[in-house]
Amino acid sequence: MPANLYALGAIALWAMLSSLGVALKHVPPFLLTGLALIIGSLLSLPFVVKDRRQWAVAPQTLALGVFTLFGFHFLLFIGLRIAPAVEVNLVNYLWPLFIVVLAPLYLPGIRLRSAHVLAALLGFSGAAIAILGGRESTGQAWNASWGYLLALGSALIWANYSLQTKRAALTGRNFPTAAIGLFGLVSGLLSLLCHCALEPAANLNLRDALLLTLMGLGPLGAAFFLWDRALKLGDARQIGILSYITPLASTTLLMLVSGRPWNWSIAVAALMIVGAAVLGTRAK
């Protein structure tokens, strides 16, 4: 169905996000977030030039979009800097499970079953194994725990946004997909203001510029528009299970890029987290 194809397109782009974040970890996080989001927002300009009402959204909708795009990526990029990247990536990708488990709180007609509770426990157990395995394999101190906490926070932020978007579509308070460009533009400008006030100046080379452009047009640009269409047209629970392709693809790519070999904790954690999503979405 078209909704699942949109979701798969977003998933394919998001699989690159953590690897790009690690490749650009020398770029200050506010600067990285700001530039990438502004580049991504440019994709909505053709729609806005044709109809300026595409950016006419309620203040609370704008606030939700800005908080999500700004907060999610800032927390993720900071987490990738202070804790093992592969484990942070797995914890961050608990958001599909949160979409399934929290759906009854947002969407009418959906109830939480015992299988959902078991799925939540299994998913969190997988995240715990990833975290403990990361500490064991890298010898990092407990300070790295903040990185995992930030990744968990970013996962909750994205799950909340996704479910709010679906609820708005069901209750007739929908916003145009092109409005995501406005969310990205405002979030990007806010990030750049924070960079000017809080971070040292940074010199970017041609490689940095190319990677930032790729991040902006892909994971922080087109992926958002595809995801929005998927949520508005499809079943959030089906999309949730498709989303668990992302941690496997993203983690595999991240390990290839970083040259880090697979170990038992990563393999077990990935299987548990994906199994949790399958269990949660198949519960009737």
Rank of each mutant, 00 (worst) to 15 (best):
V101H: 00
P59F: 11
R173D: 15
L182F: 05
F67G: 14
G71P: 04
L170P: 11
L118R: 13
Y93G: 02
R135G: 10
P84Q: 03
A115T: 08
L192E: 03
F175A: 14
L62H: 11
A120M: 15
A120K: 08
K166D: 08
I99G: 03
L150V: 01
G133V: 06
V91M: 01
T177A: 10
L150N: 04
I131L: 12
G134H: 01
L122G: 07
L198S: 08
L76V: 05
A197Y: 09
I157S: 01
F175N: 13
A144H: 10
L198I: 04
I131P: 09
C196A: 15
A120Q: 08
S187T: 05
N143Q: 15
L80V: 02
G147I: 01
E87I: 00
F74D: 04
L132C: 04
Y148A: 00
V100R: 02
Y161P: 04
L150P: 07
E87L: 04
H73Y: 12
F70W: 09
V86R: 05
Y148D: 00
A115M: 10
I180Y: 13
L152N: 06
H195M: 07
R111G: 04
G184P: 06
Q140L: 15
T68Y: 09
F67I: 08
L105K: 11
L163C: 00
A130S: 09
H116V: 01
L156F: 11
T68I: 07
I110R: 15
R113A: 08
T61Q: 14
G172V: 11
Y148F: 03
W142R: 15
L80A: 00
A169V: 06
T165K: 10
R167I: 08
T68R: 07
I99H: 02
Q140H: 12
C196H: 15
P104I: 01
N92G: 01
A127L: 07
F67W: 13
V100K: 06
S191Q: 05
L156C: 10
L69T: 13
H116M: 07
T61V: 15
I78Y: 02
S125A: 14
I129T: 08
V186N: 05
V100A: 13
V86G: 04
V88D: 03
I82L: 05
V117P: 08
N92M: 03
F72L: 15
L80Q: 03
P96K: 06
L156T: 02
G79S: 03
R167L: 14
G134D: 02
A103S: 12
H195P: 04
I82Y: 06
L94A: 11
I99T: 07
G139W: 04
Y93Q: 06
A169T: 05
T68G: 06
E87P: 01
L97H: 11
A130E: 05
L193P: 12
F77E: 03
R111A: 14
P104T: 05
A119P: 05
R173P: 06
A128K: 10
H73M: 09
F124W: 13
S187I: 02
L149G: 08
H73F: 09
L185Q: 07
L76Q: 05
W146M: 13
A63T: 09
Q164D: 11
G188C: 05
G147V: 04
A178N: 03
E136R: 14
R167H: 14
G153A: 00
A103R: 01
